[in-house]
Design a protein around this nucleic acid. Structure first.
Lengths: 230, 230
DNA sequence: TCTCTGCGAATGAACGTTCGCTCTTGCTGC
DNA sequence: GCAGCAAGAGCGAACGTTCATTCGCAGAGA
């Protein structure tokens, strides 16, 4: 889909809409390579997986594979880029939710569910680890994080202006906490460990309510605090 | 990095004020290797760091290094094992806390603080990733996780028996959530990203209170629930 | 003496990548 | 329609490098 190489050459676009055109077939092949690479990376890690392993997984020779991606690193980058696109899509849905707490819970659950359904949780861990040492991956990873964080920030700011968030909470700390909690739950793939999604959602909702302290719970908590502190 | 290549070549160094026995010196050298290896692993990852890099970091030849550890993998295992020991020590302190919420917050904060102070957060990520594909590391990592989880479980069970936890919460889901949240916060090294420790502690306390619903907040929350549901 | 510790060149395997080659595809002029 | 042809797609042996690990040797301490 969004692989960096397709149609990168100045080739005249073939008009054959018959079955699969050349460009279409090229895209399909690139996609197959990415899927195979993912499988290998999950199995052996970015550094542990060899190009020969990936070749075997796609059923392609090294020479053929290198026609689609100029290096191993470019494959990793393409995977990270696809992740970014997907995260942006999830974030876009946040505005459909009726309240701050629900919006944040929704995004969190979407993230957890997606990583579980696709089995990409180990890959996520891998990308995180790789981003700590590989510049290209770090850039892609950071950009992705920032996309999500900016989306959250804008959303929370608007909610705060509407008075849906206790004005005493610090937005920056909150954001970092959100991201950390979401990440922790996602990489641990809780559903795979037998934790029902409903339990996670209930907990996430309780957590978000405690952190955001939306208006309807605020007076009660405040009362609780002043009561226990006096 | 408390080991700046302290001129420890093969030359006999009579800097020892005390008479260090052979076994003691051997332990010290092994420790130096582990520290150097950690630094290299943080920099390049387990698979990315080469034995030659580690050798250079310790100031030792490959031949010498292999007298202490029979393989690269055994170094990784030793590091994971040391982690396990440390986690157990942190867990042991949980019983000193006055209440469930405080106990859990204490352990969480200890964990976050330790990973920040030692700069081991990237190493932690690395171990997690490696544990997904390397059997020996997985075993060490799982054992470590289980130690902590069992410690938590025992602690929470006792607290539940004392009535400090809302009986309607599911212990297993709770445990998994605790571990995930703690891990997320730890690997993200929030203090390094400018989030004050106090903010983290406040948030952690709010989260734990919301999840455990200890007796003193329970009636109020229950009242809230029945009130909003009716 | 013998054992422990350390050295560093050497080794063979595995790695990412390249290259020359063949076969296929789809466009061109006729 | 079809021969001709350039370029795309694929192959797999080969390349140069780097890796983890080994080994024969040497000095130091007991």
């Amino acid at each position: 889909m969004d692989n960096p190489l397709n149609t990168a050459f100045g080739s005249p676009e073939p008009q054959t809409d018959e079955a699969t055109s050349r460009a279409e077939r090229r895209d399909q092949q690139a996609q197959r390579i990415l899927e195979a690479a993912k499988a290998c990376f999950v199995r052996s890690g970015f550094q542990g997986a060899s190009m020969h392993q990936i070749c075997a997984e796609v059923g392609m020779s090294p020479g053929a594979l290198y026609r689609y991606f100029p290096s191993k690193e470019s494959i990793i980058e393409a995977i990270a880029a696809a992740d970014r696109k997907h995260d942006a899509e999830i974030m876009a849905r946040i505005y459909a939710s009726p309240s701050v707490v629900e919006g944040v819970v929704q995004v969190g659950m979407d993230h957890i569910r997606h990583l579980h359904d696709t089995g990409d949780a180990p890959l996520f861990t891998e990308i995180r680890a790789e981003s700590m040492r590989n510049d290209a991956v770090r850039v892609a990873c950071m950009a992705c994080m920032e996309d999500v964080e900016n989306g959250f920030r804008a959303y929370l700011q608007k909610a705060a202006e509407r008075g849906e968030i206790d004005p005493c909470v610090k937005l920056d700390s909150l954001l970092a906490l959100f991201m950390s909690i979401g990440e922790g739950m996602a990489i641990n793939d809780l559903p795979a460990r037998g934790i029902p999604l409903e339990d996670i959602e209930t907990a996430l909702r309780a957590i978000m309510t405690a952190l955001l302290r939306p208006r309807e719970t605020r007076s009660r908590v405040a009362a609780n605090e002043s009561e226990t502190q006096n």
